[in-house]
Design a protein around this nucleic acid. Structure first.
Lengths: 158, 158
DNA sequence: TCTGAAAATGGACCTTT
DNA sequence: AAAGGTCCATTTTCAGA
């Protein structure tokens, strides 16, 4: 599978990851391409799945979600179907923004966005205490969201 | 303080967090509002900063970024300016997608997106080993990104 | 809420390499 | 062929009545 993206594509990706509202004509002047070419390239990358989707990014604190919590979880059994069950539960929880199944000292890492500690306490009961496959979990309360994004550094060479 | 969002706003937010490309007319039929009303509400939320920005979401694996790593970091000194320096460094690193300053057993949690282990090794040298304020750090390699998003569960009641 | 203007997208078609 | 550019139709956004 050859390189799918050229330098134009990468520059465009960097731009639309930062701000997807920029008109294609403006993107064109920035990367030195006509608006039509920009349009074709963006469409192509969407079709390839390189661009998965476009999304509005909401500021949690503006909607009273002031608490971000990182939780590490160790499981009791690593049996496939029990793991799948946990993944399903975590993924389905609206307060769980991210869930990674990891190798290392822990089995899962979760990023939760909640309104307050009380809400988090409720969630711990729901997600961890009442789940008999959770051996232990550790809570790290975020005091500052230093950097928050999902971007991919497509234009970086190394 | 917090701007008031009604049920329409919340439903709209949920929609555009999922997919920001949906035409406002279509959003209108979904939430039972005219396209113009949808337009005004979205604009208002953008002005209030509730909607911070719009972004293209790139699929990392399609651009050869197949490795997600969660790193916990403990610092040597919690002196303000040394912490600020670290935050600055972490935030400036293109491979660092997220950085949380946390309370608990660790001081920082980082989410990194890299192409391979070799690249991660280089980064550990750059970010951790060569930083004399890093006391220790722990690496958790993601085997599966069970859920990945930045959404806020605005439409959930509790 | 409706109407219409302005802007942006996306296709047709031709040119360049 | 593959990709760019120009032009034009269609769709979408957005302001005024």
């Amino acid at each position: 599978m050859g390189p799918i993206l050229d330098a134009f594509d990468r520059k465009l990706l960097a731009e639309v990851q930062r701000d997807a509202q920029t008109p294609q004509s403006e993107l064109g002047t920035r990367v030195n391409l006509s608006a039509a070419a920009v349009n074709r390239r963006l469409r192509r990358m969407a079709e390839l799945g390189v661009i998965d989707h476009y999304a509005a990014v909401v500021a949690p604190e503006k909607v009273d979600y002031n608490l971000t919590v990182v939780v590490t979880v160790e499981v009791e059994s690593e049996q496939i179907d029990r793991l799948d069950e946990m993944k399903r539960i975590f993924a389905a929880c609206p307060w769980v923004q991210q869930c990674y199944y990891v190798a290392g000292e822990w089995d899962f890492v979760l990023i939760l966005t909640v309104q307050n500690m009380e809400q988090y306490n409720e969630l711990t009961r729901e997600l961890f205490f009442s789940n008999n496959n959770v051996k232990r979990f550790k809570t790290l309360v975020s005091m500052s969201r230093v950097k928050v994004g999902l971007g991919v550094p497509v234009e970086i060479e190394r």
